[in-house]
């Protein structure tokens, strides 16, 4: 199937009648995912959005339930966002990040209803990356600019149109509703050519990285690596796979709500015990945790690297702490055995 770029606003308007449509919209000099009221608001074809798609499924602050105790008794209200949604224009790396997060929010031990309800009700329509940025390293972490693993539909930009590739039945159902024209052989050739032309130049060598992290917890290299890190949460909050959270009660007297907030391993409050003890006392332990979590613990737990190579942390770090350089330094260092 194929859809002309000039028909996209119309197509989105039709979807808006039935779904909450989330798409990149312009905010200052970047884009963010927002629910759109009109198809014309969607800004497609720019690079990655400033904030990753995770916030649409796992919001930065989420009210899990609210409660009140009155003379009539206790009342509990647990809202559930079960609206039918289309996430339109997501990049393959962001879509893949949700496949990784599925491991965390849906496993043998835990099923998170808030996240899973949104996941089940959202159709993921992605746009492949014809021009990967210099900071993109998706091909080094088992993905690529046209990776369909997290998508229901993949759109391939062929200039004036998008060639539509159906990935799942969910995607097929949405495309059938839209009644799109069939793609000609020439269109398909153009799509194949676009894929061929998209080259991810940046490569990060992860060979032996996991083996090194398995034994280098006490390697003095961590002393050096974290030194310029400011300990802010920019990298973790802009990361599509960082998912640590903290749960707090916002309450006054007998009424309040329980809220789940993003947490960040960069912060001093992270893993601070009620006793006052913190196993991660300094920036060194906290930054080590960030690397370990993505490239060791996530691999141990789910057999996947917890990074999709979107490059947001590289572009946004206030001190140019580049994860590619950090990984290279770790690989190059002399491994120390745990003691």
């Amino acid at each position: 199937m194929i859809v002309s770029k000039k028909d996209i606003p119309n197509l989105l308007d039709k979807m808006i009648a039935e779904y909450d449509v989330l798409a990149p919209v312009k905010k200052d000099n970047f884009t963010v995912f927002k629910p759109i009221a009109s198809g014309a608001d969607a800004v497609l074809g720019e690079g990655n959005t400033k904030l990753p798609a995770k916030e649409l499924f796992f919001p930065q602050s989420e009210k899990l339930f609210s409660y009140s105790v009155t003379e009539e008794g206790a009342k509990l209200d647990a809202p559930m966002d079960d609206k039918k949604k289309v996430l339109f224009g997501v990049r393959p790396c962001d879509a893949r990040s949700l496949k990784l997060l599925d491991n965390v929010f849906d496993n043998d031990k835990f099923q998170d209803p808030y996240y899973l309800t949104r996941r089940a009700n959202t159709v993921m329509v992605g746009i492949g990356c014809n021009m990967p940025s210099s900071t993109c390293f998706c091909t080094s972490v088992n993905s690529g600019p046209f990776d369909t693993s997290g998508l229901d539909i993949l759109l391939v930009d062929t200039g004036d149109a998008y060639v539509v590739e159906l990935v799942t039945d969910k995607g097929k159902a949405l495309a059938d509703q839209a009644g799109l024209a069939a793609a000609s052989d020439a269109d398909k050739t153009a799509a194949a050519a676009a894929k061929e032309a998209a080259v991810v130049t940046c490569q990060v060598n992860t060979d032996g990285l996991k083996a090194k992290l398995d034994v280098n917890f006490y390697d003095p290299i961590w002393e050096k690596i974290h030194e310029k890190c400011l300990g802010c949460g920019a990298c973790t909050y802009l990361c599509p796979t960082c998912h640590c959270f903290d749960i707090v009660d916002d309450a006054v007297d007998c009424a309040g709500c329980r809220v789940r907030n993003w947490d960040s391993c960069a912060f001093p409050l992270f893993t601070l015990h009620g006793s006052g003890h913190n196993p991660r006392t300094s920036n060194k332990e906290r930054y080590r945790n960030r690397i370990m979590h993505k490239f060791k613990y996530f691999v141990d737990n789910f057999n996947e690297i917890g990074c999709v190579g979107c490059g947001r942390c590289i572009k946004n770090c206030p001190v140019n702490m580049d994860i590619r350089v950090v990984l290279e330094n770790i690989r190059g260092s002399e491994a120390r055995l745990d003691s």
Binding site: L51, L230, C232, G233, Y237, P268, L269
Partner: peptide, 25 residues
């Protein structure tokens, strides 16, 4: 627009309280 990443605070040479009031629970 603020995402409370505290990059502003941590980039500032003058922000050095042992415990910032926002981190106090």
């Amino acid at each position: 627009k603020c995402i409370r990443c505290y990059a502003c605070r941590n980039a500032c040479p003058m922000c050095y309280c042992t415990e910032c009031f926002v981190d106090c629970s």
